[in-house]
């Protein structure tokens, strides 16, 4: 289950994590950081857009349902600002329709909450591998 962290052996993967559930963002950040990636957490769509304006990320993990902005809207903006950045979507919605809609708008993949962290890490790596920054 637990992999040995690859501390600074390869260039660190930078990840933008967007979810309005603060508790969720906190614990997920900690766990991903522990797995050797750098995480910038945003608790709303607008915060995430501001973060993306400041710098580039290798990958983004985006919750589909947020208070201020719809995940799909945020995704569209992401795709305009950084078309090369893969986006993995998270959804608490049992319905996977909206997640599928996200893929239509250019998302890399989606996961339904709750999920196994390993699945998320694998998808992140797949996404970056596809993007050219192969890590494995």
């Amino acid at each position: 289950m637990a992999k040995t962290p690859q501390k600074r052996a390869t260039p660190q993967i930078s990840l933008l994590l967007v979810d309005d559930e603060v508790g969720f963002v906190e614990v997920l950040s900690k766990r991903i950081i522990r797995r050797g990636m750098s995480v910038t957490a945003a608790s709303s769509g607008s915060e995430a857009i501001q973060a993306l304006r400041r710098r580039d990320f290798d990958v983004a993990v985006l919750d589909l349902k947020m208070e201020d902005m719809d995940g799909i809207e945020v995704l569209k903006i992401f795709k305009k600002m950084a078309p090369a950045m893969p986006v993995i979507m998270l959804t608490g919605h049992g319905s996977e329709n909206s997640a599928r809609e996200g893929i239509k708008f250019g998302a890399f993949d989606y996961l339904t909450k709750p999920y196994e962290l390993e699945d998320l890490i694998r998808k992140i790596k797949e996404a970056i591998g596809q993007g050219g920054n192969c890590d494995e």
Binding site: E21, G23, F24, R31, G92, T112, K113, P114, Y115
Partner: peptide, 10 residues
């Protein structure tokens, strides 16, 4: 689902 996700993550 959201709280359960947090519980699982924690």
């Amino acid at each position: 689902n959201n709280p359960v996700a947090i519980m699982v993550e924690e």
